[in-house]
């Protein structure tokens, strides 16, 4: 049965925790081309008044949707994905950071799509707001 069938509002479809280290940030900088030094240099982060080196917002957006991608498998794709960057994720040079994602069905639509709402937190604090992924059957399927 397709992951997209028989969904119910409020159903948790995926949960995952992601351990970030400075290596994670450097890898994302290289892959994305975003070499802003606030994502890997403590001295630059401090000079601009940040509490520490921050994860790229687009990195957090990028992995936060992966539990949904894994749950969907080959049954469809994420056709619309939006977030608001509400709070930066500080990545300690030794301890790193841990981000937890909970994906819950927000809306089930008549056209076979559904909106999955993502709760993305560090400890108790939400780091991405209004984080919503619409899952759809493949186009032409």
């Amino acid at each position: 049965m397709s992951a997209l069938q028989n969904l119910e509002k409020g159903q948790v479809v995926a949960e995952a925790s992601f351990a970030l280290s400075r290596d994670t940030l450097v890898r994302y900088a290289g892959a994305s081309g975003d070499f802003n030094p606030i994502h890997y240099r403590d001295d630059v982060a401090a000079a601009v008044g940040l509490p520490g080196v921050l994860a790229h917002g687009m990195l957090t957006m990028g992995f936060a949707v992966q539990p949904v991608v894994d749950w969907l498998g080959a049954d469809g794709y994420v056709s619309d994905y939006q977030v608001r960057f509400t709070r930066p994720v500080v990545v300690d040079p030794a301890e790193g950071a841990s981000v937890t994602v909970t994906a819950t069905v927000g809306v089930v639509n008549d056209d076979g799509t559904a909106r999955i709402d993502l709760k993305v937190v560090v400890g108790e604090q939400t780091v991405l707001g209004k984080s919503q992924a619409v899952v759809s059957p493949w186009p032409g399927a």
Binding site: D80, Q82, R84
Partner: peptide, 8 residues
């Protein structure tokens, strides 16, 4: 960066 969205 305030908000980001991708519509496919």
């Amino acid at each position: 960066h305030g908000d980001q969205r991708f519509q496919y």
